[in-house]
Computed example of a mutant assay.
Amino acid sequence: MRVLVTEDDESLRVAVDASLRGAGFAVDTAVDLPEADEALSVNGYDCAVFDRMLPAGDSLRYVAGRRQAGWPVPVLFLTGRDAVDDRIAGLAWGDDYLVKPFAVAELVARVRSLCRRGMPGHAPVLRHGNIEVDGGRHEARRGGRLLTLTAKEFVVLERLVAAGGEPVRRAELIAVAWDEMVPPASNVLDVLIAQLRRKLGAPPVLHTVRGIGHLLR
């Protein structure tokens, strides 16, 4: 799942970026609305996080303009403004509203919820063979055995299970777990696949399709 975070406070931006990445999200950051607009013009996102007051103005107006043009991406607003009118305005154009100061763990949980809300037809529990992935509980099992997975291993397995036995390209698996800064030729995915294959156990179910990617069979 890929998230755009637009926040001009460097320390908060770095903290949110690190926490979301640690939870398995691919994250892009922007410091103002022009940077955010550029990122949104070239990338697809499952959720966007906006600080309300940015150097170029109130992000609420920016999001409202995009909403009126049919932009569907779920939005979480961050703000120090906690008046009832501010909350109502934020929820009119956004999907969630978090008042500063906040616990970063709560932000991660809210972003995860918004990302899943934005996936039409996304089943809360996915199955392929004897593998089961429960996105709501963030749990995965094989043959009823709970798997201990990292956040990145979980999102990769979830994408493979959703593919229903069809191969998923390397670039797509990298995109759901990391971001565009990781080149397709990087070995980070190979390391993760090896760890995931070991955790899934015998008989082998996670296979490599040379020159394409990986699949469950």
Rank of each mutant, 00 (worst) to 15 (best):
P184M: 00
D58K: 14
G90P: 13
A185V: 01
G70R: 06
V3K: 09
N187S: 15
A171P: 01
T79S: 15
S11V: 12
A151D: 13
A177Y: 00
L12T: 13
H214S: 11
L76I: 14
R61T: 06
G22Q: 10
M1A: 14
R117F: 05
A185E: 09
H214K: 05
M119N: 06
L60N: 02
L20I: 04
L20H: 01
L60I: 07
A175G: 03
A163M: 09
G201E: 10
L76W: 05
T148F: 08
I88Y: 02
L33F: 08
L40R: 08
D82R: 13
V99K: 05
R81S: 15
R159F: 09
V27M: 11
P120E: 07
G136I: 09
V209C: 12
R2Y: 00
I174L: 14
A48P: 01
E158M: 06
R145S: 01
Y62C: 08
R137L: 13
V42S: 13
V5S: 10
P55L: 09
A171E: 13
A48T: 13
A83N: 01
A92D: 15
G165Y: 05
E10Y: 13
A83S: 15
A103F: 04
N130I: 02
I193M: 15
V111D: 07
R112E: 05
D134A: 07
F25R: 04
W93D: 07
L114N: 03
L54R: 06
V14T: 13
A105N: 01
L160Y: 02
N43G: 05
R142L: 13
A89I: 08
V63E: 11
G201F: 10
G135W: 03
G144N: 02
V5L: 12
C115I: 02
A105D: 11
K100I: 11
L40N: 04
D179T: 00
L91G: 06
P101W: 07
G129S: 10
E10T: 12
P167G: 02
D179E: 00
R141A: 13
A69F: 03
V188E: 04
A103I: 01
E166L: 14
L91T: 08
Y97T: 00
M1K: 07
V14P: 01
F102R: 03
D51H: 10
G65K: 12
I174A: 01
